[in-house]
């Protein structure tokens, strides 16, 4: 997915501001990146370049750190966040099949955001309700014992609800 010029500008400015709160030591790389993600919600390559410049590191080193840790995301989060549980119980109950069906239905890979910024897809370790495995979190809502058909139904009903809400809003005006 592509970032707009405005988003890139914001990313550069924010990461510059955040960087300056820290000493330019190599050890501050992760704290800076965490703060950048805290402000922006993600760490785009534009921000990595600024941070790399501030710490006098090759940008590829920052890229390596960001791609290594699960806590960093490189794309902006979507309006709705889909988190597929890949904990032990969910894995055994076919979590990867669920992840695969989300990927196919949304047309994105895990860690990405759809072109319209509606959905972002993530994998999480354990949500703490293994008896309901396999589980997906749709925003804050826990979807228990999910199946590929349930994924389709869920997406359809949410899209329908969104559409109706939009139409409702238009009608009021």
């Amino acid at each position: 997915m592509k970032l707009t010029e405005e988003e890139k500008q914001i990313a550069v400015e924010t990461s510059r501001k955040v960087s300056e709160l820290f000493d330019p030591g190599k050890g501050n790389l992760i704290p800076i990146l965490q703060r950048v993600q805290g402000e922006l919600g993600y760490v785009p390559p534009e921000a990595m370049e600024v941070v790399a410049g501030y710490l006098d590191l090759p940008p590829v080193e920052v890229y390596g750190v960001v791609t290594f840790y699960n806590q960093f995301r490189t794309t902006p989060p979507g309006k709705h966040q889909v988190k597929v549980c890949m904990g032990t119980a969910c894995h055994v109950k076919g979590g990867h099949i669920i992840l695969d069906s989300w990927e196919r239905r949304l047309g994105i890979k895990v860690g990405e955001t759809t072109e319209d910024r509606e959905y972002s897809l993530e994998r999480v370790a354990c949500v703490g309700c293994c008896t309901l495995a396999p589980v997906t979190l749709y925003d804050e809502e826990v979807i228990p014992k999910i199946t590929p058909t349930k994924v389709d139904g869920l997406l359809f009903s949410h899209q329908l609800a969104d559409k109706q809400q939009k139409e409702g809003n238009a009608g009021e005006k």
Binding site: P58, V60, Y63, G64, F68
Partner: peptide
Amino acid sequence: KTRGAGILGFARR
């Protein structure tokens, strides 16, 4: 990193 342009690195895990 030491003799070239410093563009290669490790990524992902």
